[in-house]
Computed example of a mutant assay.
Amino acid sequence: MKMSSAVEQSLVVLVMLSLQKDDLPVKSYLLSDRLEVSESYLKKTMRKLVVSGIVEAIASKEGGFKLARPIAEITLLDVYQAIEGAGSFIHSTQLADRIFLSQESDNRVEDVQQALEVATDDVLSVFNEAEQDFKNKLQNYTIAKLLQHINVDEFGKIDWRQSAVN
Score class of each variant (00 low, 15 high):
57 A>M: 12
57 A>Q: 11
58 I>K: 12
58 I>A: 08
60 S>K: 11
60 S>F: 06
61 K>Y: 13
61 K>L: 14
64 G>C: 08
64 G>Y: 05
65 F>V: 01
65 F>G: 01
66 K>S: 08
67 L>S: 05
67 L>K: 01
68 A>L: 10
69 R>Y: 05
70 P>T: 10
70 P>G: 14
71 I>M: 09
71 I>W: 06
72 A>E: 14
72 A>W: 11
72 A>G: 14
73 E>W: 06
73 E>Q: 11
73 E>G: 09
73 E>S: 15
74 I>N: 00
74 I>F: 03
75 T>A: 00
75 T>S: 09
75 T>D: 02
76 L>S: 02
76 L>G: 01
76 L>W: 03
76 L>E: 03
77 L>M: 10
77 L>W: 04
78 D>R: 00
78 D>G: 02
78 D>I: 02
79 V>C: 00
80 Y>M: 02
80 Y>L: 09
80 Y>P: 02
81 Q>P: 02
81 Q>E: 12
81 Q>F: 06
82 A>M: 05
82 A>Q: 05
83 I>C: 04
83 I>P: 03
83 I>M: 03
84 E>H: 05
84 E>M: 12
84 E>I: 03
84 E>C: 03
85 G>T: 10
85 G>Q: 08
86 A>G: 13
86 A>Q: 14
86 A>I: 11
86 A>D: 15
